[in-house]
Simulated scan of single mutants.
Amino acid sequence: MLNNRVFDGVSARILVKTRRCQKKLWQYDPDTYLHCQKVAQVSYFLSHLLRLPSDAAQYVYLGALIHDLGKTAIPKIVLHKTGALTPEERAMMQRHPSLGREIALSIMKNVPETEKQVVLDVVEFHHERVDGKGYPYGMSGTEIPLAARIVAVADALDAMVSYRSYRSKPKNVKQALEELKHNSGYQFDRKVVGKLVEFFTTY
């Protein structure tokens, strides 16, 4: 769970509400909760590579911690299906960002907009693509908040290097970075991917 010492620029209200969202995730699906933990760590690291102010990086981290909150509204039989999704199941899955925003809003209803906006942006927009072919709204380029573009890259990286029920084995980090580079400027923000690749190739 959250460590208050990390969040010197974030209010106690948003931390408490984020914990409640995390608890909901953990209770419904521990695998999704753990995925969000890993994505949050990469997102926070990426935020610093992009030289975001400390408080902005903290809000990106909080959003990433609960970016898949909407999956608590998806039946587990769909969430963990090993075969291809039906069109109806795919449509259901593609609703999880907007469902996540609704759930987060219900939990964070007493938190001021200025404190929760970045968190909600991450939850709602992390599956948008810079080429406009993402979901749920088909936003493109800088229409997509930077926080969501950062988390989209971190989310994809963790998905590729982790075991999933729908594929035989994960990619290694080098393969995952190549995939991110291949889709840079289309699915993912070119600058965000570039900073991540630059770090791995330099260090």
Results as ranks from 00 to 15, higher is better:
101 R>P: 02
29 D>Y: 05
188 F>A: 01
189 D>H: 08
175 Q>W: 03
193 V>Q: 01
16 V>L: 06
185 G>E: 04
73 A>G: 14
10 V>E: 10
128 E>S: 11
114 T>H: 10
69 L>A: 09
43 S>F: 00
36 C>A: 12
149 R>E: 01
201 T>Q: 13
89 E>N: 09
97 P>H: 10
109 K>S: 13
62 L>R: 06
14 I>N: 07
37 Q>L: 14
52 L>A: 13
185 G>Q: 09
113 E>R: 12
46 L>H: 04
117 Q>D: 00
102 E>Q: 14
45 F>M: 01
73 A>C: 02
144 I>K: 13
102 E>W: 04
143 E>R: 13
201 T>W: 01
46 L>F: 04
199 F>M: 04
155 D>W: 03
66 I>N: 08
129 R>I: 01
109 K>P: 00
194 G>M: 11
5 R>D: 10
14 I>D: 07
48 H>E: 08
106 S>D: 15
27 Q>C: 02
6 V>L: 11
173 V>S: 00
10 V>I: 14
32 T>R: 12
181 K>T: 07
146 L>C: 05
49 L>P: 10
30 P>H: 05
7 F>R: 10
101 R>H: 08
34 L>G: 00
135 Y>G: 02
28 Y>K: 14
48 H>F: 04
24 K>A: 13
67 H>I: 13
48 H>N: 11
190 R>W: 00
157 L>T: 08
9 G>A: 08
163 Y>W: 07
123 V>E: 13
150 I>M: 02
158 D>L: 14
120 L>C: 09
126 H>D: 07
197 V>A: 08
10 V>R: 03
173 V>M: 11
11 S>M: 04
137 Y>V: 01
104 A>V: 08
172 N>Q: 00
2 L>C: 12
84 A>R: 11
111 V>R: 06
103 I>E: 10
43 S>A: 15
93 M>R: 02
193 V>P: 10
163 Y>A: 10
85 L>R: 06
78 V>D: 05
15 L>S: 04
77 I>E: 12
50 L>F: 10
58 Q>A: 02
6 V>N: 05
185 G>A: 09
27 Q>G: 06
183 N>L: 15
89 E>D: 07
68 D>L: 14
158 D>R: 01
143 E>Y: 02
152 A>K: 02
15 L>F: 04
22 Q>L: 15
56 A>K: 05
86 T>S: 15
121 D>H: 13
72 T>H: 03
51 R>M: 08
181 K>C: 09
184 S>L: 09
43 S>D: 02
128 E>T: 03
37 Q>R: 13
151 V>C: 12
199 F>Y: 15
123 V>T: 12
14 I>V: 15
105 L>Y: 09
